[in-house]
């Protein structure tokens, strides 16, 4: 294969459309960062930076799962509710485990975290099975599980925060810092790295792209797509649960008010601004990460600039519509030209 030409041959226009997306978001991000560091000294404060990174991490983890579901041509409205459910389940199970194994923090934490992750897995499984086997639209199914999961979370807690988790979970994990950075960041980095590998190097990642690009052609090529569709929803559920557990450890109590519609909408916004196409088949986790960071910094910047927090959604809305409209218009120009 020594003759293999590395340069693109004529007639095969490479991925120019992609590079615009690649460049656009980081430039915007840098612009906001530079602008803010000039406008407000507080922005550079270590506390503020840590705060940004922590929030961005939580959003990134959820957005990665959401992105995978959208790339496969679906939607997951239930992530916000799963965050709440996982938080409550984790705290509650830890409370019960503390009674079962008094003093054995490792066992208690293991039980709690496992239970939390399983709650996310269960919701993801229901979503996935309904979408893949019953061929129901992902939008409505996850709308249903969203209501159901939120309801279960509230049933468990009656709306009151759940305490009683081991100190080592809260102080030693949730609020701990390694090399000056909170644990959530390491978790997020690990998730992103794994997801990048999954997207590029695994069968699962490849099939997710293929299903979103053209499900019929994928089936015709001999791929049993159902299990991969279910896989995307399970992944999204588990990642949302991870965020719920991190939030619980950080705050120190399980709360049914975590996540919610806001987090769900933000995760979709992060994915969409990060170049994930709602038509399916297109999107990279690393860009979604940048987009999650961008959204978090933007919110922070608006706060520091004392722009009425109530007006902030307006910016988010406009940016999101503008980003997608720009992508759509460039796509149209490409197909026309």
């Amino acid at each position: 294969m020594s003759t293999a030409a590395v340069t693109l041959r004529p007639g095969t226009p490479g991925r120019t459309g992609f590079s615009i997306q690649f460049a656009f978001l980081p430039v915007l991000l840098i612009a906001v960062v530079v602008g803010m560091s000039l406008a407000s000294p507080q922005f550079y404060g270590p506390i503020n930076i840590l705060n940004i990174l922590r929030n961005a991490s939580l959003l990134t983890i959820v957005a990665c799962g959401q992105a995978i579901v959208i790339i496969a041509g679906g939607f997951d409205l239930s992530v916000g509710a799963v965050i709440a459910l996982a938080s409550v389940v984790t705290a509650k199970v830890m409370g019960m485990a503390a009674a079962a194994f008094p003093g054995n923090d490792a066992a208690i934490i293991a039980c709690g975290v496992l239970a939390g992750l399983c709650s996310g897995l269960a919701v993801g499984l229901v979503n996935g099975i309904c979408v893949a086997k019953l061929k129901v639209s992902g939008f409505v199914v996850t709308l249903g599980t969203m209501s159901a999961a939120a309801g279960v979370g509230l049933m468990i807690t009656s709306g009151i925060p759940v305490y009683g988790m081991p100190e080592s979970f809260v102080k030693g994990f949730g609020r701990a810092q390694f090399f000056g950075l909170p644990t959530a960041i390491y978790v997020a980095i690990a998730v992103v790295l794994v997801m990048v590998l999954v997207q590029r190097r695994t069968l699962f990642g490849r099939y997710v792209f293929a299903i979103g690009g053209n499900a019929e052609a994928t089936t015709n090529s001999g791929v049993s797509i159902n299990r991969y569709v279910i896989g995307t929803y399970v992944l999204s559920g588990v990642l949302a649960a991870t965020t719920g557990i991190l939030l619980t450890a950080q705050v120190g109590s399980g709360q049914a008010s975590f996540g919610g519609d806001r987090m769900m909408l933000q995760s979709i916004a992060a994915a969409v601004i990060g170049g994930v196409s709602l038509r399916g088949g297109i999107g990279r986790v690393e860009i979604v990460t940048v987009s999650a960071l961008f959204l978090t910094i933007l919110g922070n910047a608006l706060n520091l600039l004392r722009i009425d927090s109530r007006l902030q959604p307006v910016f988010l809305g406009i940016i999101m519509v503008a980003a997608v409209a720009a992508e759509e218009l460039s796509r149209r120009r490409k197909t026309r030209g």
Binding site: F75, F139, L265, I268, A269, V272, L278, R279, D308, R310, L311, Q312, P313, V314, F315, L316, G317, I318, M320, V321, V324, A325, E328, L329, R332
Partner: peptide, 27 residues
């Protein structure tokens, strides 16, 4: 207009105006 003329999906378009409307209402 965003959906029909700019070709943005109803989900994104109305999610955008969702945020904008919340902002205007609370402000």
């Amino acid at each position: 207009v965003v959906i029909a003329l700019l070709g943005v999906s109803p989900f994104v378009a109305t999610l955008g105006s969702y945020n904008i409307a919340i902002g205007i209402a609370t402000t």
